[in-house]
Structure formats: structure tokens, C-alpha cells
Design a protein around this nucleic acid. Structure first.
Length: 743
DNA sequence: AGCACGCCGACT
DNA sequence: GTCGGCGTGCTC
């Protein structure tokens, strides 16, 4: 009879134990040990007892069977919700190519409990005079580590444990030595945490009745929920159509069933102003999670959720893992926002993961956006999601009027400045009327593409249809496939010498503005002026109070806040993101422009927007001008299908990092060769390896290999195989490989 | 993380 | 020789 072994992750708070261990299941625990269960296990030589998580069951012992120890006990405290989250972690690890340990850490804040709650400090336990003889003794005996530690302790009195370990290279045995001499004490300090939520005045609670359109959307969603296999619902609702009222109605319905709700909002929109409506409507059962919360505070919120003290959690991406015992609904607002995709391994996408969690726990998923991501809208159109429209703006506010300025024409008339004549004129007009202006410089993805200022031609890769990036060595490089060519001094299309990178920052614009409009109050918002956490809000608040006439900034300024007195929005160079080297460039450009344009004239006054571009004929610009999402989508999906980009096919990235460039290059090309060897069929497209957009970070060179295939499962299998290949190959020892399934 | 093991300088 | 610190590697 073959034995069954349990694969167990020992202690997820320990980075170094990032692998699973096999344990025997003793007779009396047979049947109790399942995936996701918490178990007590012996670990290490000292017979140390630890808690582990069962992540799998296997029949084959991986090491000699006599070295395998047995599970001591199953913790039944390990509630159902945790085991569900652990299976979700399993899915994340598989889907996004991370280790189980990394996935568990993303999903379970539980284990951070110890570290966040109890910070360990090393404290000097003897008076300084008493230490000096020891210090001298250590110096004499060349006990370098002890000397180092004691010296530091005498200077600072207390040290953080982790700091001592990392910076002073102190090991546990050294600390024990000093402790025995009575020179040092380890203090565990509890982080006392205050509750986040202060009671909100609910007296002025008024529930506005739903409009017929809103009612209809709710009715359709409820009808979908009644079906046997409810699909995720996608509400495409223009700004001002009252999506929030619909959300409220859905939430109320779910709460009435005794279930709980998770509301995801992009981090940037997670302001008090935005969530206070939820407090007013639902009161104390609402809990807010944001990145300003410490890990401990976040843990407390999760704990409250588990105990049933709250039933609505509002937060960013990470709030998705709130351990509600009976989750009924996950709402994702502004579902197209890219902050829903994690940039750390596992690079999970909150939308996909929410849908998975919904399936597993029988919770509904509702997505909302004024301009859904191409992927989601595609799924809506093909029936994978239920698509609902909320197109009518109430309050009758009008769409802003949008002017598109061709910068090529401006150049022809001799205007080489950042401001077209139309925009200059309109700014002057607003200043006179004491209305406000927002100028938006889209620098996302700007990495030095090369374009002709005369005809607008952009140097593109002949293989990938993305912009080439100019490098200091005088070469133009494609970051998708590595194609290289010489930089040009003349436009290959029209012969104009006005070809080069677009170089302008918000700072230069500020200077230019002050020159052109002396006396105008200008506020600038970019990475420089928002270094501290609150700077962002402070600038916006100052602008809202009318302390400046013009606000210039990067994409930060177009998200979130409404300014009723803003009647003009200018997008200074809409192309900057259009020409980034990313197949999503058009989508991102359209999204940003649509949002920017939407900032104009939110109050009673009619708004205007000016889009300056070198590509007035590009569909993303045209669609932004008419503010027509449908037009944009039709063009974009055609392009994606034609080029086999998602959602037509799945893409995965293999990202490598190494301090040795040559070694990295070789290793990455081996990856490519290996993948090609085990999957030689033509339907797999390999792109690269090529340097990453930012090709060197802190002495680490970075390269990426893209894999594209119709079937995501194939990519997952290839990733698994590649992972094994990398693990057994000595040549990969100093190379960090990361997988990203959501390119 | 915690523990054992083995290397190497210092001192009997 | 031996004592003991300190780095390294392993834990199913």
C-alpha cells in the first residue's frame, strides 16, 4: 500500500524557507489532512515545533522515506476561510508563476502578525562603564562581530533587530553571547494600533432614489445572480451616470443576505472624500484600508473582518484578500486602472483574481468603468461577462468640447513652443475670466522614442510595431525583440532634420508658462513636488481653493478630484504615451485623454479641452476627441486581433536580472532555446530576449523574453518546465528569474 | 529563524 | 593541542 505524504510550507514569514517539505500523515490524522489546513510539525534538529500549511498531497517521497517526519497535529482553528484563501494562493502561484510561499504571503496577512505586532529590539542592558571592559576585551581577542554590535549598542542604546542582522551582519549566536554576559536584552515591543475609523455623522443621510436607468441595471444584475452560473457583471457607465448609486443598491442587497462585501478602488482615488459616502450610508460596518495603514493596522482590519465586526471593506488591490467568512460581492470600480495589477511577484491582476475568488466562494463580481479595459469589454461583448450600460448623465451636464491641434501644422507656421496658438489663446481667455486651467503632460512610458516634428513619423520596429528607443550609444533599440538600428539625423519619410526625442518636463513647462503668462499662479504636480505622502493631496486642495490659476502635472492630475472651476484642460503632447513601446499604448493614451478631457467643465460651466498631438489622425486621439469609447474599442480590438496581442492571445514575460550583462544575455537566450526545443510548434511566438525598458537598475541588468500563445495553459506549462530547467542548471545560479503572466 | 558543523586564530 | 567565535548550510 502506497503512503500519502503532505507537502507543507513551513513558515511563510521566513523568506529563506521558500519551499515545501514532505511530512508523513499518521494513522490517526488520516482524512483530516487536506490542502489548506494548518498543521503542527517538528522541524529541524532541535525538534522545534512549528505551524505549517498543507499545500499539496503526493504519493512519491522526494527524499529517503526514513528522513520524513510525521505531522504532529491538525489545527482545526485554521478556519475555512483561511483554507479557501490558501487555495486561492495556489491558483495565484500557478497562474502568475510565483512560488507558493510568495503567493501565500500576498494572500494571508496572518503570518505578518508576529513581525508587525512584535518588533524586536536589541537594548543595552548594562551601564556604559560596565561595557567598556568587555569592548576592550572583544577588541583584544578580535571578536569582531561582538565588538561591532556592542559599539553600536553603546552609541544608540537600542537597535532594531532586523537592522542589526542586515547592516551589522550580526548572527543569532553573537546576540546570545552578549545576552549571556548581561550586556544586552531583547525587547519585544508591541505596536499599539488605533482604529482607523472615527464615527461619521450619519444624520444627514439621504438615500436618493434610483433613476429608471439605474434601476434597470440593478434589476439585470439581480437577474444574473439568480441564474445557475452567474457571470461577472461589467457596468460601463459614463462619469456622472451614478454608478455609485448602483453599487450602493447592490451592497445593500448583499448585506441583507447576511453576506459581506469587498469594494476595490484604485489607490489614487482612495480619498476620504470618495469613501465618505460609504460611511454615511453604511456606518460602522465599513472599514477602510489604504497604503498608509501599517501592516499591523491592516492586520487588525482583517481580524475585524474575520470576526464579523465589519461587513464592507473598501481598499486598493490588496483588500481583495480580506478574510470575510461569507463573502457575497466583490466590486471593482474603475476596473481599467492599471494599479490593479501587482508589480511585485506574484504579478497578479486583482480583476482576474477577484473573479477566481468569487467562483471559489460563491461571491458575485461586479466591475465598473466609464472606459473599460479592452480585455474586459471584449469579454463583455463575447458574453463571458454580463455587459450593462449606464450611459445617461444625470444633472444634464454637457460633454466638454474638444479641439485637436496638429503640432506638425504648428511647426509649419513657425511655432516651435510647447503651446499651440489655440491653447495659448484659450489659456489667456480663462485667466481673464478667472477660471482655472489644467495642463497635462503625459509622460507615461516616455523613454526617448524618436519622432519627426515635421511629418510626425515615429521610428518603429519593423517586427513589433512598437516605437524604437534611442540609446546613448547612438543606436535605436526595440525593447520587444531586441532589433537594433543606427539612430537617424534625417527623417526617413520626409527628409526633415527636425527629428529627435521629445524632451520636455513639467518643470520646463512651468518656466515657459510664467514667461508667457506673467502673473498667473501656477502649481506643479509631479514626482518632484509630491515626494511626501500628503503633498499630493495638499497641492490638489490648494488648487481646489483657487490658490492658483493653472495646474500642471503628469497623469496624477487627471485622476480623482473634480474642480468645478476648471473650464479648460490641455493635453500638451498626447503622443508621448502613444509612442511608448507597449502594445497597450493606444489604450493607455485613450484612457488618459478621456479622463483628462472629462476634467473640464464638471460644474455648471461648459468645458473645453485641447489635445496637442503629432498624430491627429490616430484613432485613439479621434475617439478621445469625440469621447466615443465604442469607436475606440472597435479599432483597438481589430488591431489586437490582427497582431495577436491580448485578448486574442495570452502573453507571458520571463524577466531576468543579473549583475553580469554577458551572463544574463547568455542565460536568457538559453531560456529561449529551451522553450523552443520543448515546444517547437509554430503557434508559439517568442519575442526577445531583449533589454527591459529600464535596462539596468542598481547594477542589475534586466532582460525580458516574451512568450505568446493562444492558449494560456500552454504558457503555464512552459513556465513550469522552464522553472525546473533553471533550477537544475548551475548557469542560472546568480540570475534572478521572474515570471509575469499579465503583460 | 535556529541549530550543528567545521574552519581558524588565540591562548594554556 | 584545545577553546571558542563566526560563517555556512540544512531543515522533510
Amino acid at each position: 500500500m502506497s503512503r500519502i505524504y503532505a507537502d507543507i510550507i513551513v513558515d511563510i514569514s521566513q523568506e529563506k524557507l521558500d519551499k515545501s517539505f514532505q511530512y508523513e500523515i499518521p494513522e490517526e490524522l488520516q482524512g483530516q489532512v487536506e490542502i489548506g489546513k494548518r498543521v503542527r510539525i517538528p522541524f529541524g534538529n532541535g525538534g522545534r515545533e512549528l505551524t505549517g500549511y498543507v499545500i499539496g498531497l503526493s504519493e512519491e517521497p522526494k527524499i529517503e522515506p526514513d528522513r520524513i517526519k510525521a505531522i504532529l497535529a491538525v489545527e482545526d482553528r485554521g478556519m475555512e476561510i483561511e483554507s479557501r484563501l490558501i487555495s486561492l494562493a495556489g491558483w495565484i502561484a500557478r497562474q502568475y508563476g510565483s512560488t507558493m510561499n510568495q503567493a501565500l504571503k500576498t494572500v494571508l496577512p496572518v503570518k505578518e502578525k508576529e513581525t508587525a505586532k512584535e518588533k524586536r529590539y536589541l537594548c543595552l542592558a548594562a551601564p556604559e562603564e560596565a561595557c567598556i571592559p568587555f569592548l576592550e576585551e572583544y577588541r583584544r581577542k578580535h571578536y569582531k562581530a561582538k565588538e561591532r554590535l556592542l559599539q553600536a549598542l553603546m552609541e544608540k542604546k537600542t537597535l532594531e533587530y532586523t537592522y542589526a542582522a542586515a547592516e551589522l551582519k550580526i548572527t543569532a549566536s553573537v546576540i546570545r553571547g552578549l545576552e549571556e554576559k548581561g550586556l544586552l536584552k531583547i525587547e519585544r515591543e508591541r505596536d499599539y494600533r488605533n482604529p482607523v475609523f472615527k464615527g461619521e455623522d450619519r444624520k444627514n443621510l439621504e438615500i436618493s432614489p434610483l433613476s429608471p436607468a439605474q434601476k434597470e441595471v440593478c434589476r439585470e444584475i439581480f437577474a444574473e445572480w439568480e441564474t445557475e452560473h452567474p457571470r461577472p457583471c461589467l457596468i460601463k457607465g459614463v462619469t456622472g451616470s451614478g454608478k455609485t448609486e448602483v453599487y450602493m443598491e447592490l451592497i445593500t442587497h448583499v448585506l441583507e443576505q447576511g453576506q459581506q462585501v469587498i469594494v476595490l478602488i484604485p489607490e489614487i482615488a482612495l480619498t476620504y472624500q470618495n469613501v465618505s459616502r460609504f460611511y454615511r450610508r453604511f456606518g460602522d460596518c465599513v472599514s477602510l484600508i489604504n497604503s498608509r495603514l501599517s501592516k499591523g493596522e491592516r492586520f487588525d482590519q482583517f481580524e475585524r473582518a474575520k470576526k464579523g465586526e465589519v461587513s464592507i471593506v473598501i481598499g486598493p488591490r490588496s483588500a481583495l484578500f480580506t478574510p470575510f467568512p461569507n463573502l457575497g460581492l466583490i466590486l471593482i470600480d474603475e476596473e481599467h486602472e492599471d494599479s490593479y495589477k501587482s508589480e511585485k511577484t506574484p504579478c497578479y491582476h486583482a480583476r482576474e483574481t477577484a473573479i477566481r475568488r468569487g467562483e471559489m466562494e460563491g461571491a458575485h463580481v461586479v466591475l465598473g468603468s466609464a472606459s473599460p479595459s479592452v480585455e474586459s469589454y471584449y469579454k463583455g461583448k463575447t458574453g463571458e461577462y454580463k455587459l450593462l450600460y449606464l450611459e445617461e448623465r444625470y444633472g444634464g451636464s454637457r460633454l466638454p468640447q474638444v479641439f485637436v491641434v496638429d503640432l506638425k501644422e504648428e511647426l509649419k507656421t513657425g511655432n516651435r513652443s510647447m503651446f499651440s496658438s489655440v491653447l495659448t489663446e484659450k489659456i489667456r481667455d480663462r485667466l481673464q475670466r478667472k477660471e482655472q486651467v489644467m495642463l497635462f503632460l503625459n509622460r507615461r512610458g516616455y523613454t526617448g522614442f524618436v519622432s519627426c516634428r515635421s511629418c510626425g513619423h515615429v521610428m518603429k520596429c519593423p517586427h513589433c510595431d512598437v516605437s524604437l528607443t534611442s540609446h546613448r550609444n547612438g543606436r535605436l533599440i526595440c525593447h520587444y525583440c531586441g532589433y537594433e538600428t543606427w539612430d537617424v539625423s534625417k527623417c526617413p519619410v520626409c527628409g526633415s532634420p527636425y527629428i529627435g526625442g521629445f524632451k520636455a518636463g513639467t518643470q520646463q513647462i512651468e518656466v515657459l508658462l510664467q514667461k508667457s503668462f506673467p502673473g498667473a499662479g501656477v502649481l506643479r504636480m509631479d514626482a518632484d513636488t509630491t515626494k511626501k505622502k500628503d503633498d499630493h493631496e495638499k497641492i490638489l486642495a490648494a488648487f481646489a481653493r483657487g490658490e492658483a490659476d493653472i495646474l500642471i502635472g503628469t497623469q496624477m492630475i487627471v485622476k480623482g478630484h473634480d474642480f468645478p472651476n476648471v473650464t479648460l484642460v490641455g493635453a500638451l503632447a498626447a503622443d508621448l504615451s502613444l509612442c511608448s513601446e507597449d502594445y497597450r499604448a493606444a489604450e493607455k493614451t485613450f484612457q488618459l485623454l478621456l479622463q483628462a478631457v472629462g476634467r473640464a467643465g464638471r460644474g455648471q460651466r461648459a468645458g473645453e479641452a485641447v489635445i496637442q498631438t503629432y498624430h491627429p489622425e490616430h484613432y485613439s486621439i479621434l475617439a478621445a476627441q469625440t469621447q466615443n469609447y465604442e469607436d475606440f474599442y472597435q479599432q483597438e480590438i481589430r488591431y489586437r486581433m490582427l497582431m495577436d496581442y491580448p485578448p486574442a492571445a495570452a502573453m507571458a514575460a520571463v524577466r531576468g536580472a543579473c549583475t553580469d550583462e554577458a551572463l544574463l544575455k547568455e542565460a536568457m537566450s538559453y531560456c529561449r532555446k529551451y522553450v523552443k526545443r520543448i515546444y517547437p510548434k509554430e503557434d508559439l511566438v517568442l519575442i526577445g530576449p531583449a533589454p527591459e525598458t529600464v535596462s539596468k537598475v542598481q547594477d542589475y541588468y534586466k532582460m525580458v523574453l516574451y512568450m505568446r500563445h493562444k492558449d494560456r495553459e500552454i504558457l503555464v506549462k512552459l513556465k513550469d518546465a522552464l522553472e525546473k530547467y533553471i533550477a537544475v542548471n548551475k548557469g542560472f545560479q546568480n540570475i534572478y528569474i521572474q515570471f509575469d503572466f499579465n503583460v
